[in-house]
């Protein structure tokens, strides 16, 4: 396709990744490529291996076999901090936000700027807030009230804060686990706009989603289908229908897998 020739060099490549838990094969010989500026959907039925693959990229799961290449170099990832050091950030489905803290406190949690202890050790709230405003504005999220507890915010706003937090320290790759699950249609649309914004800023984005017909087709550039722990199909989102993607997920004509 014409699109493939103009896109950038891959930033993250997985080749021949296999992982089993006891006798159960979660992933068999799976490959995946992410490029800057591109949004890739990772779809598949329950148990297809999507989460295991994302956790492999995030350094939470160590694969039994396979090659992990980042910016053209072979890397060995031994934990989540290795992945985040490379510039890979993950937003998990439960968002990991603290509901009793406000947006700025959540954005900077664990990474606050403070004065040295001999000057009182205070958190430099103003500096954090300026930075938060810049990032949120860049992502067109100006409507978020910075000093409100995130527990009092809508699901879409919370999701957006979780995503904004992942990009606060300028990563190169963002992995999103089900960002639109449990969101209303309009909230999911807002999140979709934000994801496009990330790609427009040159990030490589991977999204796990079940919302094939709306979210995946509309927001992503490419769709990678996993089935029973293996690569089943790859589509360009432009010229595919939801039906074809779902068929690839369940492995054949309509109805066959749903019966058994």
């Amino acid at each position: 396709m014409a699109l493939d020739r103009v896109v950038a060099e891959p930033i993250l490549e997985l080749e021949g990744i296999s992982k089993s838990y006891g006798g159960v094969k979660a992933l068999t010989d799976v490959s995946l490529t992410l490029r800057p500026g591109e949004v890739v959907a990772l779809v598949g039925d329950n148990g297809a291996g999507k989460s295991t693959l994302v956790k492999t990229m995030a350094g939470v799961v160590k694969p039994d076999k396979g090659r992990y290449t980042f910016e053209g170099k072979n890397v060995s990832i031994n934990g989540p901090s290795d992945a985040s050091d490379l510039g890979i950030q993950t937003v998990y489905q439960d968002l990991s936000l603290c509901n009793n803290l406000d947006a700025v406190q959540n954005l900077f949690l664990g990474r606050e700027q403070t004065l040295p202890w001999w000057r009182g050790g205070r958190i430099q709230r103003a500096e954090c807030e300026v930075r938060a405003r810049q990032v949120l504005r860049k992502l067109r999220l100006d409507s978020i009230a910075l000093d409100r507890n995130v527990g009092a915010m809508s699901g879409g706003q919370r999701q957006n804060i979780a995503i904004a937090r992942s990009i606060l320290w300028e990563p190169k790759v963002v992995l999103l686990d089900e960002p639109t699950a449990a969101l209303s249609h309009s909230a999911a649309e807002q999140v979709g706009v934000l994801i496009r914004e990330l790609a427009a800023h040159g990030l490589a984005v991977l999204v796990i989603s079940h919302d094939i017909h709306h979210f995946v087709i509309d927001v992503t550039d490419r769709i990678e289908v996993l089935r029973l722990g293996q690569n089943a199909a790859s589509f360009s989102s432009k010229d595919v229908t939801g039906e074809r993607v779902v068929n690839a997920m369940v492995g054949g004509e309509e109805g066959i897998n749903s019966a058994g």
Partner: peptide
């Protein structure tokens, strides 16, 4: 701040 964060969600605090 971390006291408050842990009290709301120890898991979120750990991940941070």
């Amino acid at each position: 701040l971390y006291l408050y964060a842990i009290g709301n969600s120890a898991e979120a605090a750990r991940r941070a």
